[in-house]
Simulated scan of single mutants.
Amino acid sequence: MSNAIPMRELKVGEKAKVVAITAIGELGRRIRDMGLVPGAELEVVGRAPLQDPVALRLTGFTLSLRNNEADYIAVERV
């Protein structure tokens, strides 16, 4: 995980692969239920004017995530 960064650091247009979810309990389960699991590839497709939330495209769908949730997701750029 040496190249892992928090998902919040990705810019619009960047692609990454999820390497770890550090959230526990209900939040961790919710994040995984949204398809954000280790190995999942995503692309940042947009951000709100104040940079929160962030819109992500995964295989077949787009989802919106708050930055405080994105902080629990470690990714590697691809």
Rank of each mutant, 00 (worst) to 15 (best):
R66K: 07
I5A: 04
L56G: 00
V19P: 04
A23R: 11
V45G: 09
R30S: 03
I24D: 07
I5D: 08
V18Q: 12
L58C: 10
L42M: 08
A16E: 06
R57P: 00
Y72V: 00
A40P: 15
D71A: 07
E76D: 05
L58P: 11
V75W: 00
V78H: 15
R32Y: 03
V78A: 15
P49L: 08
V45L: 09
L42A: 04
I21W: 06
E43K: 13
A16W: 08
E14H: 00
G35F: 03
G46C: 13
A48H: 03
R8D: 14
M1V: 13
M34E: 04
K15Q: 04
E9N: 11
R66L: 04
R8T: 14
K17D: 00
G39C: 10
N67K: 11
T62R: 15
V19K: 12
P38N: 06
L42R: 09
E43M: 11
P6A: 05
V54W: 04
V12Y: 09
L58V: 09
R77H: 11
R29N: 08
R57A: 01
P53F: 01
R8P: 15
L10P: 03
L10S: 01
I31W: 03
D52F: 02
N68K: 15
G13K: 15
L10G: 02
R29H: 08
E69Y: 12
G13R: 15
A55L: 13
V45A: 08
V44N: 13
L50G: 10
G60K: 10
R47D: 13
E26M: 07
D52P: 10
Q51W: 06
E76M: 06
L58K: 14
A48K: 09
R30E: 03
N67F: 02
Y72P: 00
S64T: 09
G35R: 03
I24A: 04
M7G: 10
L27F: 03
A20L: 13
I73G: 06
L27Y: 05
A16K: 09
L58G: 10
V75A: 01
V18A: 13
A48Y: 03
L10A: 02
V19Q: 12
V78T: 15
M1P: 13
M34Q: 05
V44H: 13
P49K: 12
V18D: 12
R30F: 02
R8L: 08
T59G: 14
K17F: 00
E26Q: 11
E41Y: 09
D52Y: 01
V44Q: 12
L42F: 09
V12C: 12
